[in-house]
Every structure is written in C-alpha cells, then in structure tokens.
Amino acid sequence: MHLLLAPVRWLMHLIGVPLGWVQRTFGMGGMAAVFLAPNLLVFSVFIVFPIGVNVWYSFTGGAALFPAGRVFVGTEQYDLLLACDSYLDPFSCRQDRFWKGVHNTAFFVVAQVAAMVAAALITALVLNREIRGRGFWRAVFFFPVLLSPVVVGLMWKWILLRDGALNALLVSLGYQRIEFLTDPQWAMFWVIFVSVWAHLGFYALILLAGLQAIPHDVYEAAKMDGTPAMRVFWRITLPLLWPTMLVVLVLASIRAVQVFDDAYVLTGGGPGTATFFIVQYIYETGFAGAARNLGLAAAASMLMALVLVVLTLAQLGITAWRDRQEGKR
C-alpha cells in the first residue's frame, strides 16, 4: 500500500509546488480566477472574439477576408436584408432567398416543435410505464441523439431516395414510387420527420425526468378519487408536467431555428427552395457562393441571433420560474 501511494504522493508534491506559489502570489481570493482563467481563455478565443468579429463584419462590405481589407458600410447590409415591399412575400424582397429561408424556417419551427413535443411526450409517457425492457427502450430512443447530423442525413437519404430503401419496399408491395425528396411537400415533411427522429430522445428524456418528478402518491390519490385515465392525464399529469413542457418547448424552438446540417445533407435545401433555411442562406452567402459576401452573411447571423437571444431569455425565465414552482411544492 505504501509503495503504491508513493508515486501519487510524488505527483501531488509536483503539483503542490507551483500551486503553492500561485496561491502566495494571488492570494486565496485570486485562486478562483486562476482556476477559471484557462476556461475563460478558451471561451474568449472561440466564442466571445468571433461574436465581436461577426458584429464588426456585419457593418462592413467587400470581398476581403481579413478585417484590414474590409470597408465600413454602416447599416447597408441590414438595409439590404430588410428591403422588402411585404415581409409576407419573399419575392417582394431584394434578398428573396433570405426571406424564403425565414419563411421556411418559421414554418419548420412551428411544425417541427409541435411534432417534437407531441412525439417526445408520447414517448416519455410510454417509457415511464412499467414496460418490459424499459432500460433498453430508453436507450433505443436516445441513440439517434448521439449520431452526427451528417450521418443522420445520409442514412435517411439512402432510405428516401428515388431508388432508396423505402421506395424499394413500396414497389415490392406493389405500390408506385413516391418522389420523397423531389416533391416540395414530401421534402419538407421528411426534413421535419428526420429532425424529430434525430432529437426526440433528448426531449423525451427531459420529459421523462419531469414525469418521474411527479409524486407517485398523487396518482394514488387520483385512483382513490376514481379519476378516469384521460382525466388523470389532462388534470394531473399535464398541469404538473407543464413547467417542464415549457422548457422543452423553448429548447426545441432554439434548436429548430438553427436547422441546417441534417436537412442540408438530406435535401440540399431543395427541391428549389422548398427546404431552404436561414442557416443555409448564411452558409451559402458567406462561404459557398462564388462571391463570398461575408458582410451580408454576418448581418443575417445577427438577425437570427436576435431571435435566439429572445428565445434564450424566455428559457432562462421559464427555468427560474419552474424552479420557484418546485421550491414551493
């Protein structure tokens, strides 16, 4: 035992010497800052600094990559993005693709979040029951969350292509092929479906935790009160799960606004602009097009960030409210 501990002791001593020096130099209060410093540094370099750069670029124009070559143009990029006769009609806008992206994203957020919350709730309710192999099923539903979005996109693409697995199945059953990815309505449906499939487990897990936080004896009281199952759901489960539902709603919305990678791999934004979203607009404007319009892309990012900030504040507010609710219980 003594021999085993010797190297550990030696290591501790090795760490102890510089730590002792740091503590003498900065004092006990300064230690917190010292420990936080590496993280703050990484956070600054990769998060805060790029945000600053982005803000600056959104007020500049030209094709130069580095700040030195960029020209200050004031709010010109924002004016360009917001130049519309009617915001309800993307084709009346000067940046019609941006507005098409906004419209598609708005539709996607509403439809995907609704589908997501419903599917996650049903999944959580089922997984919360005493079913056989409960742990296994929980893992199954969570597994897609671990997949890379590109893998998700590719996998479903192989299933949904004209010559994909699903059409092969349809044909073998004697049905006509369906153009899943080249029909605008079907394409949007599958983008939503795949995105729900990929992220469902995460939200189901949160809801499951919420369901399990509801005291069991409340359900027993409801049983003694002779409450029909549907009434238990509407009058007891749902109200008590509501704070958690709100969190899921906002989290899912924040994520849905940023839809891009899996959808891009699946449909490339098509057919036409049927599944073209804001992030794809930013990506193509800033990086993929022949003319790299970094200023315009940065401005579009800022507008999107504004929406996300509002949603995030809502989420923080709701979380704080929920914690207060639970504290009172």
């Binding site: 005291p215 004896d217 409340v218 027993e220 009281a221 409801a222 003694m224 009160d225 002779g226 409450t227 029909p228 009434r231 009058r235 007891i236 109200p239 008590l240 219980r329």
Partner: peptide, 24 residues
C-alpha cells in the same frame, strides 16, 4: 384514504382538491 404525505394535488386549490373526486 388519507396518505402519510397528504398527496394533495399541488396545482389545485383546496376547494378543487376537495371537489375533484366528486366531479369524477
């Protein structure tokens, strides 16, 4: 039944707690 933990419905008022079973 009266439960050890009371098992009141936390989101309902006292009145609703009392009337819930009767409404059922």
């Amino acid at each position: 039944m009266v439960f050890q933990s009371y098992a009141l419905y936390p989101h309902m008022s006292v009145r609703q707690n009392l009337s819930f079973g009767l409404e059922n």
